[in-house]
Design a protein around this nucleic acid. Sequence first.
DNA 1: GTACTTATGGGTGACAGCACCCATTCGGAA
DNA 2: TTCCGAATGGGTGCTGTCACCCATAAGTAC
Lengths: 220, 220
Amino acid sequence: MTPTPAKIRILLADDHTLVRRGVRLILDAEPDLEVVAEAADGAEAVAALRDVEVDLVILDVAMPRLTGLQAARSIARMRTPPKMLMLSMHDNEQYFFEALKVGASGYVLKSVADEDLVNACRTAMNGQAFVYPGAMSALVRDYLDRLHRGESLPNNVLTEREDEVLKLIAEGHSTREIARELTISYKTVERHRENILAKLGLRDRTQVTRYAIRAGLIEP
Amino acid sequence: MTPTPAKIRILLADDHTLVRRGVRLILDAEPDLEVVAEAADGAEAVAALRDVEVDLVILDVAMPRLTGLQAARSIARMRTPPKMLMLSMHDNEQYFFEALKVGASGYVLKSVADEDLVNACRTAMNGQAFVYPGAMSALVRDYLDRLHRGESLPNNVLTEREDEVLKLIAEGHSTREIARELTISYKTVERHRENILAKLGLRDRTQVTRYAIRAGLIEP
DNA sequence: GTACTTATGGGTGACAGCACCCATTCGGAA
DNA sequence: TTCCGAATGGGTGCTGTCACCCATAAGTAC
């Protein structure tokens, strides 16, 4: 008799029970895939990896406590990190580059069909990058190429301080309030705001708010 | 032989295939529930109701094109509207009251367990209001009581015109742009904006943006 | 060590946002 | 019929936002 081929062991992390349920049913239906653990947030996922041996982690981008992106950063620092697949509601570019930056092998939207998710798992395990929708794959290839050639990133990314200011603006605080909160000058906050608008190509605070919500920096 | 009891016929609307998949599997496993149609956005859902007879519509709050809340408003205007159950990512109060206001019988988080969703369907069909998490049910009872006694609502509700302006503000348009878009005076738009801020207890356009996203009026 | 980035702070001016004041028109409810 | 709410529009003034200009200290990169 032929030996049972080793299944790909999967950890599934998503805070929505209904989503986990759907994904699990899809994956367990495949002969070569097996969900061996579930987690309801990023912290649980990281903890679970200490107890269970898995080959692939599927992480929802937006989760309470540790977000999927934060969890991915943590997982990437392990001795022998498993492959990672990010699951997202949004086909937002920003999310997507963040995901690649933290070392994910793929980025799958929750609106994809069953087969696409299954394919993403297999592709990720082969060490290739998978991205859905396909329209983005040119972007990925380009990005990974650059990364491979050591060209680092084109980096329109915000600095830590700018991220702080971005978050406060998006939460509806005025320039004056932010200055008090960070105990820096009003003018410095204005300076940061200008840089943020310029780097992200936004026009005003309203658009900053939407950006921050899309990027998962704040809750709506 | 006993006649087969009539199943509750359900239309399931969610833009995420994976979520629809999970929910459908949960519901179809019940002997008295049957998903007879699916829709990937609010407009599809409304259209589907013209072709298929359903008893209960399960609507994701946030969907492209017509959001769940907008679709619910449209469905509520039908001759014999089906019961409606809102499905949401967020346990946010704002969403929740919006859902009740448009006539939904229930509000269920995507993080609930299978049984809770099934119970929500049955409770909604009995004409009762269901809400998860339970902590909110006091709120709901109070709200529905007031509504029933004809006390109308404490009325923080916006007029149609104000809703239009709200949406445009939240999408990042300036007062001048909105005036052009609606072909009314700059001052009138300012007037509407003032009323919106006052009615909703908000302070500026940034907060309007978050409100509109929470309320499902615009996509983040 | 020179150059670049990051964070810090200042000044000025144009304009937008917001909060008050005012009024008219129209339709429906009391 | 009278009155109220909704929609329309105007005036005035304060404050906030944003786009430019400028500079310095500290750290990093080459």
